[in-house]
Design a protein around this nucleic acid. Sequence first.
DNA 1: TCATTATATAGGCATTTACTTATATATTCA
DNA 2: TGAATATATAAGTAAATGCCTATATAATGA
Lengths: 114, 114
Amino acid sequence: MEKTVIEVEQVANVLKLLGDKTRLTMVGLLESSECCVCEFVEVFQMSQPSISQHLRKLRDAGLVREKRKGQWIFYSINQQHIAYPLIQDLLKHMPDQNEKLEALEAEGLRISCD
Amino acid sequence: MEKTVIEVEQVANVLKLLGDKTRLTMVGLLESSECCVCEFVEVFQMSQPSISQHLRKLRDAGLVREKRKGQWIFYSINQQHIAYPLIQDLLKHMPDQNEKLEALEAEGLRISCD
DNA sequence: TCATTATATAGGCATTTACTTATATATTCA
DNA sequence: TGAATATATAAGTAAATGCCTATATAATGA
């Protein structure tokens, strides 16, 4: 395991952010691939503003990055974040979120710009 | 690493609980030794009811256990909790909280019943 | 240029959170 | 038994949270 030691307060702030089912799942999804906002809207069946607000919190904390590709904005995990190794460790204790993306793919709702 | 896989919602609930500096530090302290409420009051310089309420949340979630010893009630970490391995992994990314207990000891404020 | 699609922001609202002070309960010991 | 100590609970409150609807901004393509 890569070991980064982070101050308690910083750890608490990251955990507070991830202490929400939606954001935690988002991070789990982003660990396997980039996603755009509309994909999250599909996955979570939640209003688009709500999704945007969750992503904003993650972005403000530096945990995710955004990149525009045409009309879409893709979010990805920031592997440079000091808490990234910690987050990886966390995710190891959770079920893989990939099936949610595969379900999207099966419905033809996956966005791809490559 | 011991690997327990837990449902996303359960993980989120644990992270929400630990997404508070006080509770996260409490768990860090309890990982190295049992503590009673008055010790926490000293360490955190916080009102006794406030400490009790934090401990109650941890106890309600089953993360810690309480055991009366005379007039004191000692709290300990519940190593049987399904999320305990996850918590251990978390703590590896934080500085050791022991010095806080050592400081107490130096002031003669550490309670011991053995 | 205009309609459509994708995303962000603003404002409102109900719920939760973390503290406070006051009080209740439990144990110890003279 | 009664005072002192340790802890829990109750009630109140300000701030934070997470959602919603409405609207603004940005890119696309006919």
